[in-house]
Structures are given as C-alpha cells and as structure tokens.
Amino acid sequence: MIRSLQRFGHAGLSVCAKFGWAGLFLVSALVGRPNVVLGFKLLVKQLYSVGVFSLIIIVVSGLFIGMVLGLQGYSILVDFGAESALGTMVSLTLLRELGPVVAALLFAGRAGSALTAEIGLMKATEQLSSLEMMGVDPLRRIIAPRFWAGQISLPILAIIFSVVAIYGSYMVGVQWLGVSEGAFWGNMRAAVDFREDTLNGIIKSVVFGAVITWIAVYQGYVAEPTSEGIGRATTRTVVHSSLAILGLDFLLTAVMFGEV
C-alpha cells in the first residue's frame, strides 16, 4: 500500500519535473532580444512549411466534414420540420467546437509530427550541436521560429476550416437537399454571436496552437537521437497533443459556455 503510494508519488514528481523542463525549454527559446529582420525571415519560411503545407488537408477535410454535417443535420432536422435551422446548427457546431478541435487534430498529425521528426533528425545528425558550436543558439534559431509559426498558423487554419465546412454544408443542404437559401444564411447570421461563438473558437485554437507546437518542438529536441527514438518521439507528439487538445477543449468549453 505504502509502496504503491510511493510509486505514485514518484511518477507524479517526475511528470512535474518534465513539465518544468518543457516550460523552461520554451521560455529560454522565446525570451531574449529578438533579431527582428532575421527573425522575420525565419518566421516566414516556417509559416510556409508549417502553415501552407497544412492547407490542403485542412481544406479537403473541412469540405467533407461540412458536407457530412449538412447531410446528417438535414436528416435530423427535417423530422421536426426544422430544416431551416440547418445553417444555425452547422455554423455553431463548427465555430464553437469542430473547427478548432478537428483543425487542431489534423494540424497535430500533419505539422506537429513533421516538426518533431525534423528537429529530432537535426539533433541526430549533429546539426543542433554544430549550431551551438558556431555560437548560434539552436533554441532561438530553430525552435523559436517554428513555435511562432505553429502558433500563428493554427488559428488561421481553423478559421479556414470552418469557412470551408460551412460552404460544404451549404452545398449539400441548400443546393442539393433544397433548404431555402435565405433561411440557411439568415438564421445563421441571427444565431451566431461574434464574441460568444467566433471569438471563443479563435481563443480555443490559439491555445491548441501553442500546446501542439510546444509539444512538437520539445519532443523533437529531447528525442533520443536514433531512428527509433525519433519514431517514438513523433508518435508521442501526435498522441500527447491529441489528448491535450481534447482535454483542454472540455476545460475551455466548460469555462466559456458552462454557465449557460
């Protein structure tokens, strides 16, 4: 009994220590005098590889999810004769939940894993060491721009996701199944509150963006520098960030919409 309590305490402490290290790691990457010109160039490059390369998967998934929502929503609502509420239902679901969460999950799988693998390989091939020996801090040079790029990209991607998905449900609901176009858009406009819905969704994806890229760059940086170690680190990035996204989503939803 005491033994297992002890083990539990140990595990708890080591988790805390890991969080501490990861936090310290992030702080030392981000704090300090930035070199504006160089920093901007590096950021643009990373925005391209982290953000733009995730665009296709976000758009395609968004379209399909929107179409499915349109189809399912219609078949439920039509039983109550409420198919004119399709626009409301779809837009609220997307802006509040599905947009930020699904975009974040896709982002973790697409960009997070790539970040971890890239940084892990840089470590394994001693590129990080050689940066250090050239007097260039890899935390600021490699980690910081990637972190900011992920942080900036995800909210934008989540908005794109929601917009495309709403368009997908419009195609299915209005153009295919025959919901009235005026009711679709009109009800949506009446129901969606900018602060309550859109802004809260954006806040969620800002939080998710920070957490995913933090996990991804940290896992890459501490990966065991072997092919096996990098493989494991990549898996950990996807698993940890997916769990973190879903857990945090519940917390954020409870805080944002809980007291209704």
């Binding site: 091939t125 001693e126 590129q127 050689s130 050239m134 007097g135 801090d137």
Partner: peptide, 22 residues
C-alpha cells in the same frame, strides 16, 4: 550561456559526422 556562446564564436569545430545543414 551568453558568455559561452560568445567564446564559441572564436572556436571552429569539424564534427566527426560533418553535420551540414541539410
């Protein structure tokens, strides 16, 4: 850390594995 990075600017090192930026 800062002092160390400063000292390293005057060091060159050839790594066993080349370690070029890929």
């Amino acid at each position: 850390r800062d002092q160390l990075y400063h000292v390293r600017e005057r060091m060159g090192m050839l790594f066993q594995s080349a370690a070029l930026f890929t």
